[in-house]
Computed example of a mutant assay.
Amino acid sequence: MVGVRLGAGLGIALAVGAAGGGWWLPAGAVLAGVLALLAPRDGLPARVAPLADGARLMARLGLVAVFASAVGVYLLPQYRVPVAAGVVLLVTVADGFGLALPRFLRGWVLGILLVAAAGVVALCLAIAPERGAGSGPGFTGLFAATAVLFPLLDRRKPDRWLAGTVVVAAALCAAALYQLGPVRTGLSGAPLADLLAAVDGQAIEPLLAGVVVIAAVPAALGALTEARGKLSRPLGSVLCGLVAAAGAVLLEPGQAMLIAAALALAEVLVRSLLTLFARRRDVRSVLGAALAVTLLAWLPPGTLLIAVAAIVAGTLVRLPSRAPAR
């Protein structure tokens, strides 16, 4: 599902390119992959598990809001809010009934995304860009780019697909920034659509919208299912869906991406600190915590406060929920 996450969220990640990454976005994709490899994955003692579970729950719900917003932005931008709410409703019902994307369909989705990514890169390289004014942020843009892209690359079980995803992310970011430049990218609410316009590809914009839907809806379903975790169906599905719908409706796409970044980084920090508390010695957890703190320091204070409040709420939800899912 990592390719699905990348295809669904990369457009929104690029939308904050000038303010949050500029030309550092490709390097940020690589550093985000490194952080994903450093993030602790092992089990924790029962006494601290609710805190880690609460952080994971809210981090996954943050992704659901991002994916739903992506569908609204690219499918019907003038009706972004109702479309995003409809996506959340759809995946909530699907999870409530225990539906999941079959393995062979996931393979098709990944194949479609790879072909689409290759096509976008080819178009960007085939047409000379028009250079605009501005150069984007300095070195600190690297940390901003990593924070924004990390939620799209994180996995519970990193494998060779993660490495491939980082390469694809770097290629797409580099191609988009080559064609649009960091300022135009950062000012765009739908940078991949603007990218097609820049290369005279408006005729295939419906195809882009279809690719985003194919990528985002299964990704949202997978994220919602991961968020629900041990909460029982359908009550747990409805509860998670309500939280995700609130995020998708109330937040602009860029805001949703930043909050998802804060939640994902906070999850890494919480799990790293809890792992150190339980084991006292774990080099990977030390490195993961240090990098997560560095990236969190870049995010706006208001975003961090929302993330902290969300994790507290998620922990309270997880405390009484120890029964296995049906």
Rank of each mutant, 00 (worst) to 15 (best):
F67E: 15
G28C: 04
T140K: 10
G33Y: 00
A190K: 03
A36Q: 02
A15C: 10
G222I: 02
A13M: 06
A39G: 06
A193L: 08
A52H: 09
L162I: 12
A100L: 05
L319W: 14
A323N: 07
A126S: 11
A248T: 00
A147D: 08
L187N: 12
A256P: 02
D159F: 02
L207G: 14
V308I: 13
A145M: 04
W108R: 15
P50Q: 11
V48F: 13
R156D: 15
R322Y: 01
L51N: 07
V73R: 11
L14I: 10
C240F: 06
L276T: 00
R131I: 13
R228W: 01
R228T: 03
L162E: 07
G62W: 14
R280C: 00
L319A: 07
M58F: 03
L125C: 01
L180Q: 05
L250H: 10
L263F: 07
L192W: 00
R60P: 04
R271L: 09
A310H: 12
A246R: 14
A256W: 01
A309F: 10
L89T: 07
L221F: 01
P324K: 12
M257C: 05
A198Q: 13
A118C: 12
G9A: 11
G107D: 11
A49M: 13
A297P: 04
W23V: 04
A323W: 12
D95E: 15
V283H: 07
V91E: 08
S69C: 15
T92D: 00
